[in-house]
Amino acid sequence: MDRVFQRIRENLAVAGTKSPPPPPPPPSPVPEDPVATFRFRLEQAGGRWLEFATEAAARAAFPDDDGETGVDRADLLIADTGTVVRTYATREESRVSLVPPRTVFLATAATIVAGLPEALWRLAELHRAGPAYTVFVTGPSRTADVEKQLVIPAHGPREVIVALVLE
């Protein structure tokens, strides 16, 4: 490995000038109504939006023992793209939002961030601290490999529901 670094350094020395480190990406514009923006983008990406008064009501609506539904929770919601962000403890655990045909993410409005920079900003701390596995989910799985025609689902879920718990 040391030889690799040595070779890189030699080649860079020939080329000379070092460019300065770039500034961090600017924050996203904050939407007037983050919940409405998230919902609009989620539906645009083919996802569904539901609201429940309590978590118990949401869980009752989606029993997760039917093999059809994976009930998961969202760590963060990205308003700008309608994306759910979820950090899993293990690879097995992550299959809840991958293998069953339908995924339900339980979420609260407090977890909404404006855009990708804000989400990454929060995740950076976690990933700097040690091993971490994070998945961003934006709508159902899809493919367009046959003549660029959109087909849902591909190998993942056909349906992605974000269930907002209001309490």
């Binding site: 990406p25 983008r41 990708l116 990454l120 990933h127 040690g130 091993p131 971490a132 934006t138 799985s141």
Partner: peptide, 30 residues
Amino acid sequence: LTDLATMLPLLTRSATGQRMTSYFQLISGA
């Protein structure tokens, strides 16, 4: 990690015309 906020919107729009792809994984040795 925050540099991805610059690169990702460029990549997904240029490649497939998507604001964000269905999945985006960050695997940090886990």
